[in-house]
Design a protein around this nucleic acid. Structure first.
Lengths: 154, 154
DNA sequence: CCATTGTGTAATAACAATTGTTACAAATAG
DNA sequence: CTATTTGTAACAATTGTTATTACACAATGG
């Protein structure tokens, strides 16, 4: 199974916004944390905006921030916001319809795929962005305790 | 989310073998049903053989057949046999370690991914190749009932 | 009002992964 | 021995994603 990294990137971006607690962050700022190009982040933000997970404004002093509390954003919603396609792909060439199996396997596969996807989303829904934020903060606290330099940038 | 079609193809191939009920089928025969190249099927069969799901022999009159009853093969095992990678990808470029979020987000993502993958596999495990075979046969019976010509090939 | 900042978007390049194809050695059956 | 079929390598074709550049448009702040 091959996947785009959009979901992971979306969680990362949202975690930064949660960490910034209401302050607006520009696509360039987010891109710097993710280590990618601002345009990539903007495309992701469009999807997150469509799903009403973030609030993005234009112009000087603008940027994005969360649209609601991290505890009210679950990762299933994030997944649905940024991943359009089915997690499983069917071969691009159609099966041989002259074969009793090829003739009807696609329907069966689709049911299997839909069920698996639902199970996947259900699992993701159990975790909120709040959980992610707490994990991040705990990790930061731990680093500091271990004497590592307290990292600043973003 | 981008995915290879290996899993779907594997289910298709195994369904054909189940349908053929112990008769050996060549990679060319399977490829004809899937509508792909025999080498693609052979590569898939190698993975299925490694997982002991099929029994493949070489030489004249050879081919592949199931290694056990369709009811004893669940789709979770098929998934594990043919899909090496995590269903979710992390961006190829590493997050900015100088950001408190970028610094530790990967660990958190990995836990999320592992949990989702487990949920996915658990769902797949609920379906057996026997279930798939019955769906295929039911569909075939239905086509015949509806007066469609009974397809023969493969 | 105007300069600055930043998003939205298109076009396109670079890259990665999968799928498809051809070719051939090795194994096996008859 | 010959025909058949797998295993495998090498490589081309295809597809999809990510990265980059460029620029119009919107909004802000002086």
């Amino acid at each position: 199974m091959r996947t785009s990294c959009r979901f992971g990137m979306a969680v990362h971006v949202l975690a930064v916004l949660a960490y910034k607690d209401g302050d607006r962050v520009t696509s360039a700022g987010l891109a710097h944390s993710v280590n990618t190009n601002p345009v990539i982040v903007r495309r992701l933000l469009l999807a997150l905006k469509r799903a009403k997970l973030v609030d993005t404004s234009k112009g000087a002093g603008a940027g994005s921030r969360l649209n609601c509390s991290p505890n009210h954003i679950n990762l299933g919603a994030v997944y649905r916001a940024v991943e359009a396609a089915e997690p499983f792909a069917t071969p691009s060439r159609r099966p041989n319809a002259a074969c009793p199996v090829g003739h009807c396997i696609r329907q069966t596969l689709e049911r299997i795929f839909a069920s698996a996807r639902a199970a996947l989303e259900l699992d993701l829904e159990k975790t909120t962005l709040g959980d992610v934020l707490r994990a991040v903060k705990a990790s930061g606290a731990c680093s500091r305790k271990n004497g590592q330099k307290n990292k600043r940038a973003v």
